[in-house]
Amino acid sequence: MSLEKVVFSFFILLALTLNFGFVLGEFDNPDHHHSFELLAVIVVNLIATVLKFGDRTQTGALLLASSLVAVLQLLAAGVVWAYAAHVSATGMDSVMMASIVSLAAGALLANVVSVVLIIIDTVNLRR
């Protein structure tokens, strides 16, 4: 067992579970979603993305692409949150929260794709 593969898998699974935890709850209720949890999701996804650089296989390219999609959507969610909290006249309302959670849910789907690709790659290594 390679320590590098364990760390790599750890961050990918952590990104998925943190993202799931943020999305879980009523989409439009700001009380069910915390800004620090979104920040943790963004940071862990960025770390997972950096760990995917350097793999020159087709699976590695798909992993990197799915991770970049997740980071892009999470950064967009963070921008919407910052806009709602600091610029918007209405503040954090249900419409803004629904937009943030929808973007995070898209990132969740990209993280699920990453985990499925890792599982497929692992199964193929056994053969």
Rank of each mutant, 00 (worst) to 15 (best):
G25R: 07
V44F: 11
S66K: 14
H32L: 02
D28P: 15
A40G: 06
I42Y: 07
L63Y: 02
T59L: 14
L39V: 15
Q58P: 10
L51S: 01
H33L: 11
H33A: 12
I42Q: 10
L51H: 01
D55S: 08
H32I: 00
L46N: 10
D31V: 13
G54H: 07
S66Y: 08
N45W: 00
D31C: 08
V69R: 02
D28G: 15
V44E: 01
G78K: 12
V80K: 12
V41Y: 04
V79R: 07
L62H: 08
H34V: 14
L64W: 06
V80A: 03
L63W: 04
A48I: 15
F53R: 12
S67P: 11
T59R: 13
H33E: 04
L74E: 05
L39H: 03
S67V: 14
T49W: 00
L51F: 15
F53N: 02
L39E: 06
A70N: 06
L74H: 06
L75C: 14
G25F: 03
D31S: 04
V44I: 14
F36D: 03
I42F: 02
D31A: 11
G78V: 13
L46F: 02
V50W: 04
V41T: 14
L62F: 06
E37K: 09
Q73K: 14
D28V: 00
Q58W: 09
E26L: 10
V79L: 15
V80R: 05
N45G: 07
N29P: 07
F36G: 03
L24R: 11
A65G: 11
G54F: 09
S67L: 12
D31M: 12
L24T: 11
P30G: 02
R56C: 00
D55K: 15
T49S: 04
